[in-house]
Nucleic acid binder design. Sequence first.
RNA 1: GCGCUCGUAGCUCAGCUGGAUAGAGCAUCGGCCUUCUAAGCCGGUGGUCGCAGGUUCGAGUCCUGCCGGGCGCGCCA
Length: 569
Amino acid sequence: MQTESSDSMKETVAELLQSALEALKSEGVLPSDQTFSPQVGNTKDKAHGDYACNIALVASKAAGCPPRQLAEDLIKRLPESGAVDKVEIAGPGFINFFMNTASAFEVVNTILEQANQYGRNQNGKGEKVQVEFVSANPTGPLHVGHGRGAAIGDCLCRLLGANGYQVTREFYYNDAGAQINNLALSVQARVKGLSPEDESWPDDGYRGDYILDVANAYLAGETVTADDREVTGKADPDDQAAIQEFAVAYLRREQDLDLKAFGVQFDVYFLESSLYEDGKVEAAVRQLNENGFTYEQDGAMWLKTTEFGDDKDRVMRKKDGGYTYFLPDVAYHLDKWQRGFSTVINEQGADHHSTITRVRAGLQALKAGIPEGWPDYVLHQMVMVTRSGQEVKISKRAGSYVTVRDLIDEVGRDATRFFLAARRVDSQLTFDIDLARSQTNENPVYYIQYAHARICSVLRKLEDEGVNRGRNESVGDLSLLTLQEEKDLANQLARYPELIENSANQREPHHLTHYLRELAGQFHTYYNAHKVLIEDTAVRDARVTLYLAVRQVIENGLDLLGVSAPEEM
RNA sequence: GCGCUCGUAGCUCAGCUGGAUAGAGCAUCGGCCUUCUAAGCCGGUGGUCGCAGGUUCGAGUCCUGCCGGGCGCGCCA
């Protein structure tokens, strides 16, 4: 038997409506030269059935009759279907579909069969997608903003993977330039025994305690191994180049450790300097020149970004002959395009939003066949950290900001990831340390994990009673599930695949956190209202089967968030 | 000043492509542990969806203006 997911249930309804619409067309009630595509939506209120359609409201003008009249005509022409129990007209002309209860539970078997594949689809058809995120320069530990980027970027990658895309995670950074030079000077100052309070401490030097750690490791001749490089400290206080190389490797390693602790890994580390070494920056300049989008003025070379929507032209080569940051950025993105990524998503802090127009303009000016509006950007707003209602600004290690490591140490990886991914990216986020630490229902992470642990606990109890079930073995007769809570749960489970699709397409991972919160809530309600380990083993088995499906979806969802699903708490 | 963005309950936030009486949690008030994990459940209180117009059969959602917060406006990255 063909199992049906929510999507196909919805499609069934849409097909029924389509058929009725065609009938009205052939009868001349609706104009035959127009196409009507019925939108079938989920209902908020159970009184409105399981699905609702607004087509009668949309098409009433074309039909030249009141929406309720049109709805009635449509309903009369709906083909018979076993999946639908009842159809009603409601309000101004909505058509509400009440689905057959038994068919609502078919999703349970689908989930158990598909297991960790449930909710995944092949919409992406293996298309190559690249997501660039974090991309912190190696000048210090990752801060909360990077953490938000890591949580969002990684979740986005997982979601895209679940939608059948082939995802590459990339981290772009600069190991040369002014910031890095400043880093080297700061470490060198520490190597020579200076501290930030001393008068000869470099201007704008990095003041955090971690600089001292780097200096000590350098003097001790330590070897540091990051994901993409390995350097041994030379212990020479006067060799600034050696200090710089060591410091970069040291801080890259620190960041890698933070990211590993956070459960985030990258496929590619891309160095800005490589764009110069490979001649890609020069090649981009040549192409821009050839295409006639550059000019000299005030001793600098400018790019006519205004021809591509920017509000003023931008300097690409400075008076001193060096390039501004945005030129390697353009070369970098050309390289991404040439690597075959038809979709590229850059996850960054919103403070970088001005680069979007420039990079896109530069890419258009290259005339390389790159579509306008490429690449995509996901920009997240700032994060404020609070404790006891007060903003926390200082970390001892970093000095002037709160680090990802601080949060992981204090509230754990799961809560940190969840909280940083749980808000819309374009809203500013308040990270409440007290809330993230709390172990009650006010903390959504524990709330969701607790639902999972409870299910596992019930299964353990069942095992103690000598009843062993395969991991996803469907034993119960699902027709014994007659409670409203059970149907609600099944409907929520059925929504999951659509959610995975929407979250990825809209690049909005936070939907997942809210979905899981809701699912867990429905489960807790059900759990408290009705026991599962009851005398009636037939009903018990049916309920346990539903439990298994809930557990599977919670696991699948938490996995996409990079949050663990503990079996006991 | 210009650009981007946000403005929903006392607080932190949802509200997916415009849809039917705007939802959670916290806080607050009151119930539920001899019952599968109370890290839980049930109920009450609490809203002119910043303001004003517009589009629409229908607007928290789209458009315009204003007010307020954030970010950006370097030959820094």
